[in-house]
């Protein structure tokens, strides 16, 4: 077992992990932050996306030991300080960007990483950035609309409508 210390959503946390403990398992099982979802566990679906030192990563494809000393952000840290939904989350609700909600934590974390680097992405840039986030329900159009809205842009009549 190795001791790890990291900052998760602004709070310092420590724990004992095995070499093969995934970051997703540490967040969900040890810290009980179950908002990070594990959809595939094979690096394909993006439901487990969190931020490590500000960058989107698949937490099922990184060991907890490697996050020692890192700043980690999860979906639980996304809401506003008063607990209300942040701009991206609210836009997902307003534009029906979720149905079952399983992919949503990863979608929101990916969207937040995109908007940090590219505050006004085009529709094509949004679709390209979401390449690694799979949704079984929405057909993606409403997710793309939500991210357009969250970035303060007009919501277009997107393709295939």
């Amino acid at each position: 077992m190795t001791k790890v210390t990291m900052t998760v959503n602004g709070k310092s946390v420590s724990g004992e992990v095995k070499g093969n403990t995934l970051l997703s398992d540490f967040l969900r099982e040890d810290l009980r932050l179950t908002g990070t979802h594990v959809g595939c566990d094979t690096s394909q679906c993006g439901a487990c996306v969190v931020h490590v030192n500000g960058e989107a990563v698949k937490s099922c494809t990184m060991f907890a030991a490697e996050a020692d000393g890192a700043e980690v952000g999860t979906i639980e840290g996304q809401s506003n300080e008063d607990g209300s939904l942040n701009v991206i989350q609210q836009a997902f609700q307003d534009h029906h960007g979720l149905q079952c909600g399983f992919c949503t934590p990863g979608m929101v974390m990916s969207a937040a990483a995109l908007l940090k680097d590219n505050p006004k992405p085009s529709e094509a840039e949004i679709r390209d950035y979401l390449e690694g986030n799979i949704c079984r329900c929405t057909g993606y159009h409403n997710i793309v609309k939500a991210i357009m809205a969250a970035s303060g842009q007009d919501v277009p009549a997107v393709a295939a409508e």
């Binding site: 690096s43 993006g46 490590v52 960058e55 989107a56 990563v57 494809t61 390449e131 690694g132 986030n133």
Partner: peptide, 9 residues
């Protein structure tokens, strides 16, 4: 290569 999260690692 892959997607943004893969490229970040």
């Amino acid at each position: 290569i892959g997607d943004p999260a893969v490229r970040n690692r």
